[in-house]
Amino acid sequence: MQIDMRRIDSSLNMNRFYSVGLTKDLFGQHGVHRQWGRFGTWGRHRNDWYKTQIEAECALSDLVKQKLARGYLIKLPRSEG
């Protein structure tokens, strides 16, 4: 599962993206992968690892709530057709 968000405010010259998703490594650890930055750049990356999938899902949910509170909007996927 991956959630893409954006925050655009032309009055503040703000054009940001934030992407967060669940991941799992070869050793069975569950994690949350984040990527953020300004549109047109690669941005920054970060992985946080957790012992259980439930902990990772809770962390992902908390991150999404924080970003929504700061004005980010969830980018809906485009439907092909």
Rank of each mutant, 00 (worst) to 15 (best):
R46W: 09
D9E: 04
N15K: 03
H30A: 04
E55N: 05
Y18W: 06
D48H: 04
W49Q: 07
F27Y: 11
L60Y: 02
L22A: 02
G28A: 00
L68N: 13
I8P: 00
V32P: 03
V32Y: 00
G28P: 00
M1H: 07
V64S: 12
W42T: 15
E80P: 14
G81T: 13
I3Q: 08
L76W: 09
L26N: 15
F27D: 07
G81Y: 10
W36G: 00
E80S: 15
R38E: 10
D25S: 07
R78F: 13
L73T: 07
E80Y: 14
S79N: 12
T52C: 06
T52V: 04
R46Y: 10
L12W: 05
L60V: 04
G37C: 02
E80T: 15
M5K: 08
L76R: 15
E57H: 12
C58S: 12
G40M: 11
M1W: 04
R46L: 14
K65P: 09
G28V: 00
T52A: 03
C58F: 09
H33R: 12
V32W: 00
W36T: 00
Q53I: 06
V64Q: 10
G21R: 15
S61K: 15
L68G: 11
L60I: 04
I3C: 11
S61C: 13
E57I: 06
D4R: 13
W49D: 07
W36S: 02
G81C: 13
S11H: 07
Q35M: 08
M14D: 03
R44A: 09
P77H: 06
M14A: 05
S10G: 09
N47K: 09
S10Q: 12
T41K: 11
W36N: 01
T41S: 14
M5C: 12
N47Y: 06
L63N: 10
D9M: 02
M1E: 06
T23R: 05
R16G: 00
Y50T: 03
M5D: 04
W42Y: 15
W36C: 02
D62I: 12
D9T: 02
G40T: 11
I74Q: 12
S19Q: 13
F17L: 09
L22E: 01
Q53W: 03
K24P: 00
D62S: 15
G28M: 02
E55L: 01
V32E: 00
D9Q: 03
L60H: 03
S11L: 07
R46N: 14
A69R: 14
L73A: 10
I3M: 11
L22W: 04
R46G: 12
N47V: 09
N13K: 14
R16I: 01
E55D: 12
M1P: 09
G43P: 00
N47F: 05
M5Y: 07
H33P: 03
